[in-house]
């Protein structure tokens, strides 16, 4: 089982490798990937540097091209695929059918992973992508319960990658237009959710307020931890007689570590750590803990338990200092 760590820049990539990642995933510095943030990601030269470094260490590098190509600039996405092929990346993470088709035809040797943004939540969708575009791995959306993951693992031959840790998307990825509804920019079209340029912080004296495109996402009392105003993690009002609450989800991170033995027994091929937007220090720490956990589980899955030190480290690195099993656990739903 592979440990796959995020890298938004070369220092994060090195931190991932040094701390035991089997593979890293990166994006290009343009709108072709779902972490299109200022100052993040690699240009073509850095991508080659990254691929060389990773290969010197005998690990793998995956490149995410997982937004949907615009009709007036489709070439930019195709050229990103070309660039990846020439940079020697080991796999491409794709979501757009036009790019899946282009890659499968143009670069038949290229290993294709189906991005979570393609939203393949069931065996019919997975088999469809595998047959049509020779997809060799599918990244499962974070909307499935562990029983559903099991069912998929047992009914398809396609290797599966799941999210292990990091920010929790609570909507079926690739089918969420909430961000473009509120700001005009969405993960599918622009590569960002709740983009930073629409965020505004205001200190009213009594409260700290976070806004997204002028709409109040949350209001924090002094001393409360104020998180980034991701639109689905704000406090809103559903019932006028009740106080505002986290109507969709609390600020929390996904942590599936306690499911490690089960994920391993299901033959899940890769555990993905979310967070290309995170610092090198974050990537290094999270990778190190997961490396230890995976090694411990491999040694003795029956005896595996989450060490309190790992839990502590991961919680301290989590949104709102709390973690959840998310949709893996039925009760979350």
């Amino acid at each position: 089982m592979e440990l796959l760590s995020p890298a938004g820049n070369i220092p994060a990539l090195k931190a991932a490798i040094e701390n035991g990642a089997d593979a890293v995933y990166v994006g290009l510095r343009n709108q072709t990937n779902a972490r299109h943030f200022a100052g993040l990601n690699l240009d073509a030269i850095k991508l080659r540097e990254a691929a060389d470094y990773v290969h010197q260490h005998k690990r793998k590098i995956h490149l995410a091209i997982n937004t949907f190509a615009h009709p007036d600039s489709w070439r930019q996405w195709a050229e990103s695929v070309d660039e990846a092929a020439h940079s020697g990346v080991d796999a491409l993470i794709l979501a757009d059918i036009s790019l899946l088709e282009y890659t499968a035809r143009r670069y038949p040797e290229m290993e294709i992973h189906l991005s979570v943004q393609a939203s393949a939540t069931n065996p019919a969708a997975i088999n469809f992508y595998a047959q049509e575009f020779n997809v060799q791995r599918v990244v499962l959306p974070r909307v499935l319960s562990i029983a559903q993951v099991k069912n998929i693992a047992n009914t398809t031959q396609v290797p599966l990658e799941v999210f292990a840790f990091g920010s929790l998307c609570i909507m079926a990825e690739g089918r969420c237009y909430l961000s473009s509804y509120l700001t005009g920019q969405s993960p599918n079209t622009f590569g960002a959710c709740s983009p930073a340029e629409f965020v505004r912080w205001e200190n009213t004296g009594d409260h700290l307020e976070s806004r997204l495109n002028n709409l109040l996402i949350d209001r924090f009392s002094p001393g409360e931890t104020a998180g980034y105003p991701t639109l689905c993690k704000g406090r809103f009002v559903a019932d006028e007689t009740q106080p505002a609450f986290h109507v969709l989800e609390e600020p929390t991170s996904l942590n599936s570590m306690e499911l490690l033995p089960e994920l391993m027994s299901l033959g899940i091929c890769s555990l993905k750590i979310e967070g290309r937007q995170r610092s090198a220090a974050y990537v290094g720490q999270v990778t190190r803990v997961w490396r230890q956990a995976i090694d411990a589980c491999k040694k003795n899955a029956q005896q595996f338990s989450v060490e309190s030190q790992w839990k502590k480290t991961l919680s301290s690195l989590s949104e709102g200092q709390q973690t959840t099993l998310g949709a893996y656990e039925r009760e979350w739903r």
Binding site: I170, M171, A172, R175, C176, L178, E249, E331, W332, R333
Partner: peptide, 16 residues
């Protein structure tokens, strides 16, 4: 605009 594994109507009533 979005689909989830979670039922938000149920959540808004304190149910799962």
């Amino acid at each position: 605009l979005a689909w989830s594994a979670r039922c938000f109507t149920a959540r808004s009533e304190g149910k799962v």
